[in-house]
Amino acid sequence: MSESSMTRRDFLRTTAAAAVVGTAGMSLLAQQDAQKKTKVILIRHQYVVDKEGKVNPKILEEMFDESMATFFGTKNAGDAWKKIVKPGDVVGIKTNVWRYLRTPQELEQTMKTRIMAVGVQEKDIAIDDRGVLSDPVFARATALINVRPMRAHNWSGVGGCLKNYIMFTPSPPDYHPDSCIDLGALWKLPVVEGKTRLNVLLMLTPQFHCLGPHHFDKQFTWAYNGFILGTDPVAVDAVGLKIIEAQRKLFFKEESPMRPPVRHIKAAEEKHGIGIANLAAIEIVRLGWKEDSLI
């Protein structure tokens, strides 16, 4: 065992250091605040999910439009879309259809409607998840929109925007070693590289814990009632992970890191260079409901 190993103790050291910064390092954080390298929108609405867990599509649509206009600094959502999609584009909306926690179809349709309003023809827009490699529209796509819910995952720690692209490889198991640490490499596949215009990580009712490969239990979800939007998939996932971890601490009443630990988000920055995972370098623009935002 000559090769050096990342151990649990490395994580414990990080946690201990974070605790010190939390109590005495505010000036350091303030300094870091001035060095933001990327931006995400965190938007929430108290009533976007009702008590039965059903999504209110109208509110979700309004949230989506508001977040787009704010992120791209435009008067309205339509102008924001014009910044990322042109009339001649062929657009693939990479969604997620996991049976227990899928992307709301209403949001998929809202995206499609907004893209068509820019001038993209309907035949040049596809919405797909597991069939992206056999979908003729995705095969000629010039632009990708990435949207999915955040959830705990038994092999990669969490499934977020980075992991959502695993369906773009004909051999997903190649990306499974070491808790899926190299998911960031997916974003350099020719079918993907340079095409992603938008990432939306849904945090409406995220799942913060799982036991086993396909475990879903409403007990381990909560109504966060929001989503994170940006062009940097790493930053979007890093913010989502921070919120999930905070919820775990609340629920389990102690520090409770994801199991297995999430390694692919940090590696996406440090090894694959496709975005920013360091929270201190991410500007979080908060819109809407602020209570219990956990970050």
Binding site: M1, S5, T7, R8, D178, S179, R259, P260, R263
Partner: peptide, 15 residues
């Protein structure tokens, strides 16, 4: 060791 790490993370290598 991958299963051990799911339930109690010890190390990335098979120590």
């Amino acid at each position: 060791h991958e299963i051990l790490n799911i339930h109690f993370y010890v190390a990335d290598k098979n120590v």
